[in-house]
Design a protein around this nucleic acid. Sequence first.
DNA 1: GACTCTATCTCGGTA
DNA 2: TACCGAGGTAGAGTC
Lengths: 219, 219
Amino acid sequence: MRLVVARCTVEYEGRLGTRLGEAVRLLVVKNDGSLAIHADSGAYKPLNWMNPPCVIKESDGELLATNPKGETLRVVLHEVRHDLTVDLGDDPGLEKDGVESELQVLLARRVEALGDDLVLVRREYPTDIGPVDLLCRDGAGRAVAVEVKRVGEIAGVEQLVRYRERLDLDPRLAPTRGVFVATRVKPQAKVYAESRGIECVEITLDELRDGVEPELRLF
Amino acid sequence: MRLVVARCTVEYEGRLGTRLGEAVRLLVVKNDGSLAIHADSGAYKPLNWMNPPCVIKESDGELLATNPKGETLRVVLHEVRHDLTVDLGDDPGLEKDGVESELQVLLARRVEALGDDLVLVRREYPTDIGPVDLLCRDGAGRAVAVEVKRVGEIAGVEQLVRYRERLDLDPRLAPTRGVFVATRVKPQAKVYAESRGIECVEITLDELRDGVEPELRLF
DNA sequence: GACTCTATCTCGGTA
DNA sequence: TACCGAGGTAGAGTC
């Protein structure tokens, strides 16, 4: 990794065009071939960048990165204040928990938490446009398609609508019910789900983890 | 801005939980209050980070960032290899062109470019599931909902389908026409739009800018 | 390689 | 402040 602090100007031409006037900035050149240009604001997002794969050429006072798509990032260095190369070695990588897949696994273990006497038929039930998160049967023997999200937005409801269309082509399943589950369902998604006859359920990760008092809220 | 290169371990607890084993990494502490932890891979995205607003406390060999939401990022420093503070000053900021909002503004000024004798009723016409990019009337007095995208994909067509459903509930507008405009409409989006009775128009930024020879292609 | 979907998405605009 | 949509979304997984 190479860190350069320099007064510079920058131009990017690609999917859009951008310009950066002269100022002191941090350039980060990583061993993966990426180049990022940071100001002292904007949190972790750089002002400009070029992701791998790209070729970075350095000529007199200028860094030019080009990628196979023909996008270019040109940095003109007016005054270099620091130029530091460090060896970081490999990174053991990030371990995560609490993402959507965990929600899905926890729910699969306790589908009865979804309000009525549901029984899990299968997790990741396949259709020809992709897998349904959970397929269940309710007490009346009706098939129930469940879509799980961390944050429930319209796009997720739409996904469920498409899956139901597919499932309803199967006479063993039709007519299905649709249940949209998330730790938070946004208002517009609720409106849209209702218009499509889809039930919404909000649930918290902790409730599922503890397996105690689901305290589900239904809409 | 402060740059620290150090062998460290990291823990984040917030919307999810993560751990990072011991390795040499770059820490970037910006004046906006953000903290980012970078490996030599992953392009511009850090392994872990904390965005403003947050409070960063440094105690013996440890950085602890906490934010008002109760999320925490703890960095334990095992060996500091570099520790550099630089003054970057203010940044003049990024100038962009060619984004969707520019397309929308340019089109609003020249809706007649969309083929027939259209008149703009309103840009960002509100519905209860979000604003329609452009609402127009055609020569026959029929309401026309226009969705503008830089790259036209199925999701954009779906957006327009939803808006039309909403608009058609209003007797002053029903039955509406739908027009999908983009600098490039992907083939799948064209097929889907056609199946929903939505017209597609491809247009280039330059044509709109010059206001000359729109050379629209209709499907 | 193309498509799909997730994301501590981030970011800007607006009500 | 919360909500919504755009993004040079990036990245992972799947087909």
